[in-house]
């Protein structure tokens, strides 16, 4: 049987927010190590990779590996019924065709349970190659969300250009052109406010705004975001999830014709 207990169910609400714009359904692979999800969007332009380690949960039991095919709109309906401070327990029997979500209020005076049908998804498991990235940029996640939102007013694409000096985000279209430059921060009081760049080689790549904006739905999960870039390989946008693990988005660059 599978059972996972989470004292603050807001984390799962945020995870769902972070994936439901890109994916209609997904398989949650549960094992002793934790819960993993890996899926490409319908157009095979982006991939979501979620890893929640079992030791992050308040209680975790997984006797046999279990793949739960879940319609994310259905799961969103159920998670909307939970209060942010509710204690969540997810339960499924081995080989079950349903999964149960139980929400308990902090004072345990209200207990709700929701049974959700699982769906059969024939999803491929993909191996993500180890890549040495030419540039790794760490920056406040709110700043990245702001930049993506601002630049998407100017064009469908954002050019990200990283050098030792800093990172430049650019967009151009009918209105005109926009450039936002961020330098590495010299001194910051809080680590989460820092912009840091590790650069082996300068890189310039072009990406679709629409996907970058979808990735920023994960902003609530982490104060920092990490962008990893190399020429001709997908961009990786990573948000750490506290004690649990991470959500990573891979995005294929646009190619010059």
């Amino acid at each position: 049987m599978f059972e996972a207990r989470l004292v603050q169910c807001s984390m799962l609400k945020k995870v769902l927010e972070a994936i439901k714009e890109l994916l209609n359904e997904a398989t949650f692979d549960c094992s002793d190590a934790g819960i993993q999800l890996q899926a490409m969007d319908n157009s095979h332009v982006s991939l979501v990779s979620l890893n929640l380690r079992s030791d992050g949960f308040d209680k975790y039991r997984c006797d046999r590996n279990l793949s739960m095919g879940i319609n994310l709109a259905s799961m969103t309906k159920i998670m909307k019924c939970a209060g942010n401070d509710d204690v969540l327990t997810i339960k499924a029997q081995d080989n079950a065709d349903n999964v149960m979500f139980m929400f308990e209020s902090q004072n345990q005076e209200k207990v709700s349970d929701y049974d959700m049908k699982l769906i059969n998804l024939d999803q491929e498991h993909l191996g993500i190659p180890e890549t040495d990235y030419s540039c790794i940029i760490k920056m406040p996640s709110g700043e990245f969300a702001r930049i993506c939102r601002d630049l998407s007013q100017f064009g469908e694409s954002v050019v990200i250009s990283c050098t030792k000096e800093g990172v430049k985000f650019s967009a151009a279209g009918d209105v005109g052109a926009a450039n936002i430059k961020l330098a590495q921060t010299a001194n910051v009081d809080k680590e989460e406010e820092a912009v840091t760049i590790e650069m082996q080689e300068p890189v310039t790549l072009t990406f679709a705004c629409r996907y970058l904006n979808s990735f920023t739905k994960a902003t609530a999960l982490s104060p920092q975001v990490q962008l990893s870039m190399s020429a001709d390989v997908p961009l990786v946008v990573e948000y750490k999830i506290g004690d649990f693990g991470h959500i990573r988005y891979y995005l294929a660059p646009k190619i010059e014709e």
Partner: peptide
């Protein structure tokens, strides 16, 4: 102008 690339080919099906 540029076209949107795809991820097929970058990831290996296990």
């Amino acid at each position: 102008s540029c076209t949107q690339g795809r991820l097929d080919g970058f990831f290996k099906v296990l």
